[in-house]
């Protein structure tokens, strides 16, 4: 399943580039491109659109207004916005209307892809890896990973990992079979990419948990064994979405 996208920009060349970037991205599907927000709004009201890439400064109806209109009826339409603009001053406004990201013109395909990947994670479309952006994201289908621990690569079975904890420049990988965690020199970001997204989730700046090992959830605290892990503010939305999958 792809994320359906609409591109809006009053400048023809900018719209061209934006559309090209969307088409170039495998997990995005361009369903419409518009040179003004009014026509786009008409389309969005009648079709299912997941994601809008748009400029802010446009005649007649600005991107910010459109975002506000859509934000107002959030319940009926799960449409999210990524702004692409030359105005850095409106980033704060952008976050107020809950834009997923804010691209500053001119932006490269790498910038665009980073924003699109955010959307991809937001919509939680799990399956084939999004795009081979780095070798780390090409998760092997295997049931184990290799971790660098004190000058050697240690094979770790995914099932054995209960959670991963940030520890200065290292990460502590807690295993069910061992009392002491493995200490590996890598970043949380790398770990997040290394671990399959359908089985692991980042819930805090310092924690990635194994979904299989969750014992219980109380409000925003997750219990794994005798460990309690709080869900960070940044990750609440994503986590509550996961929880709602099972509570409905």
């Amino acid at each position: 399943m792809k994320i359906s996208c609409v591109a809006i920009d009053d400048e023809p060349l900018a719209l061209d580039l934006l559309s090209k970037f969307i088409q170039q991205t495998t997990f995005l599907e361009l369903v419409g491109k518009f040179s003004n927000a009014i026509e786009a709004l008409g389309y969005i009201n009648q079709h299912e659109v997941n994601l809008i890439f748009m400029d802010i400064q446009m005649p007649d109806l600005s991107g910010m207004e459109l975002a506000r209109i859509l934000d107002g009826k959030k319940n009926s339409s799960p449409t999210r916005v990524i702004f692409c603009t030359a105005y850095h001053q409106f980033a704060l406004e952008g976050y107020k209307v809950e834009a997923l990201d804010y691209l500053l013109k001119p932006y490269s395909y790498e910038d665009f892809l980073a924003a699109a990947t955010k959307a991809y994670q937001y919509f939680g479309r799990i399956g084939t890896p999004a795009q081979p952006t780095s070798s780390a994201s090409q998760t092997p289908a295997a049931d184990y990973i290799f971790l660098k621990v004190e000058y050697q690569l240690v094979k770790v079975v995914l099932k054995d990992i209960t959670h991963v904890e940030a520890y200065k420049d290292y990460v502590k990988v807690h295993l069910k079979s061992k009392n002491h965690p493995l200490l590996s020199l890598t970043s949380m970001k790398n770990m997040e990419e290394l671990l399959p997204k359908d089985r692991f989730m980042r819930v805090h700046r310092s924690f990635i948990i194994s979904l299989d090992h969750i014992d219980s959830i109380a409000k925003n605290v997750i219990h794994i064994g005798n460990q309690q892990i709080a869900v960070g503010d940044l990750y609440k939305e994503q986590f509550s979405e996961f929880v709602s999958r099972w509570t409905n």
């Binding site: 400064q57 446009m58 005649p59 109806l61 910010m64 207004e65 001053q89």
Partner: peptide
């Protein structure tokens, strides 16, 4: 043409 009130 009128300028949208909250355009930059």
């Amino acid at each position: 043409f009128p300028i949208p009130p909250d355009s930059p």
